[in-house]
Amino acid sequence: MINIIINKISRLLSGIGHRMIARIWRLGAGARLFILAIIYSGESFKRFHLTLREIYFTGVMSLLIIIVSAFFVGMVLALQGYNTLQKYGSSEAIGVLVALALVRELGPVVTALLFAGRAGTAITAEIGLMKTTEQLSAMEMMAVNPIARVVAPRFWAGVISMPILAALFSMVGVLGGYLVAVPLIGVDEGAFWSQMQANVDVRADIINGVIKSVVFGVACTMIALFEGFDAPPTAEGVSHATTRTVVISSLTVLGLDFVLTSFMLVV
């Protein structure tokens, strides 16, 4: 009886251990891909149209979802904020609330989450399928390095697109908040903007938001690329990898956000 229990526990522990080792192995492989992507980036800048093409697919194609979501997020923020602020008689502060929430947190974070769902999955599926259909092998046999030709341009496209999308998200969100607060609710327009300008700092808030979005851009793109590269070459493998891209990207973005925010508030 006791033997069986001990046996079960030890099997459970070794299972956890195996899984941990697998995770760490993947982390290392991902880091290696990241470094290789940086090393072989020369091509993506020398022949910039390769990167432009990927910016088109990751950035431009994500414009619509980003703008529409930002607009609604801004409007909801203004509605909710007004509801609470007017209880304390400071409904003019609604501009500050909307702007700070967007610029500091929601802009970079929600953009990164949407990016992972929209562009990240596309990258993973595309690379996974290229691997499944031996396109990457074919490229390698043609003496073309797939990391320089496939990974690096997509990596830089993601890193460039993310801050642009996040800035757009924040700006459109503020406009959405403005539309609800000023014409709809009737908050004074001058107070809305001036309170906002007095309390949103360019360095501490806007630049930090941009820094966040760049970091998220690196993380999301790299995770999507790695999952695609690492996917088992089957239909099931690619579909699992796509799911993992969304899950891991989202968790990573939220975790990184906490770390970055605590750094930024302390320094």
Binding site: L129, M130, T133, E134, Q135, S137, A138, M139
Partner: peptide, 8 residues
């Protein structure tokens, strides 16, 4: 390659 492996 077996199935051509054209770049789709």
């Amino acid at each position: 390659f077996q199935h051509g492996a054209l770049f789709t």
